[in-house]
Computed example of a mutant assay.
Amino acid sequence: MIEIMGFLAPFFMKTVNVYMIRHGQTFFNRYNRMQGWSDSPLTPEGIAGAHKVGERLAHMTFTHAYSSDTTRASNTMQIILSHNMNTTVPYKMTPLFREQFYGYFEGADSAQTWYMIGAPHGQKNLHTLLEHYTLDQTKDFMHATDPFHDAEDAVTYWTRLMKGFKMLREENRNGDNVLLVSHGTTIRSIADKFGKGQFPIEEGPKNASITKLQLTDSGINIIYYNNTEGLLQ
């Protein structure tokens, strides 16, 4: 609420455009290993992908830039910002937009991990799991399968992410364009939760792809998902 002539009136935020980018390819991506809060360096292909997306975004003006606090995300953002004409974009790293935490499965072979998680539910991999269950259910399945139960369940995960969106709203009240580098499962989860079934979330976003969100008074809207080519708006 804001005060106008002694009366309280609702505050209406202007639309915030968030260009959410998956970090460039890493060695764990290349080796098909689980990479949540664990980290590995960008591959040469990952560095080239970050430069490519930086070139695609170079014509746009951004008022703020954010990334998760993983090295792969921050290095991707630094490359992107090196291409932008506005070299004074304020930049913040935050744990709120980290990848899902995979607990015991961090660094493990992805195919083997999803077989262990899916087998009790009659499924052999993540793709078939998603044909029968939601992404949030897979988070809960992973938490249950983890012998330490350290992997984030859906409630824990979304509590963290929504704090991140609250931060974006509070720091960008003027209808800003914002850059955000995050992670594959996180971007896929956001598209699933807020995309109203419009996007093929069984296909994860590619490294260095762009997903556009709009934050409004009424919620979060997904404008496009997993964009890798073409003119950006």
Rank of each mutant, 00 (worst) to 15 (best):
K52F: 07
R30Q: 15
M34P: 00
S68F: 12
T61V: 13
R72C: 03
W37Q: 04
R30S: 15
Y31Q: 13
Y31W: 13
Q25D: 03
S40K: 08
T70S: 14
D39I: 01
G49E: 14
S40I: 02
R56L: 14
D39V: 02
M34S: 03
H51I: 06
A50G: 09
T70C: 11
G24E: 05
T70R: 02
T63S: 12
L57P: 02
D69G: 05
L57N: 05
G36Q: 15
E55H: 10
V53K: 02
R72Y: 06
M34L: 14
S67K: 05
R30K: 15
E45G: 01
T43A: 15
S68H: 00
P41L: 07
F28Y: 15
I47L: 10
N29H: 12
L42P: 03
P44S: 07
R72T: 10
A65I: 07
T61S: 14
P41A: 09
A65T: 06
N29I: 11
G46Q: 09
R30E: 15
A50F: 05
H64Q: 12
R33K: 15
A65S: 11
R30N: 10
M34I: 15
S40V: 08
Q35W: 07
E55W: 03
T70F: 09
F27S: 04
F28H: 09
P44I: 12
V53T: 14
S67D: 01
G49K: 00
N29F: 14
F27T: 08
V53G: 01
F27N: 00
I47D: 05
H59V: 00
T63N: 05
A65C: 10
N29E: 03
M34H: 06
L42G: 05
S67F: 11
A48Y: 14
K52G: 10
T63L: 09
T61K: 13
F62D: 00
N32S: 12
R56A: 15
L57A: 04
H59Y: 03
P41D: 13
L42W: 09
D69N: 12
T26F: 02
W37C: 09
A48T: 10
G46E: 09
M60L: 12
F62R: 02
A48K: 15
T63H: 04
F28A: 07
S40F: 06
T71R: 10
Q35L: 08
S67P: 00
G46V: 07
S67R: 06
G49F: 00
T61D: 14
S68Q: 09
A50V: 06
M60V: 01
T71L: 12
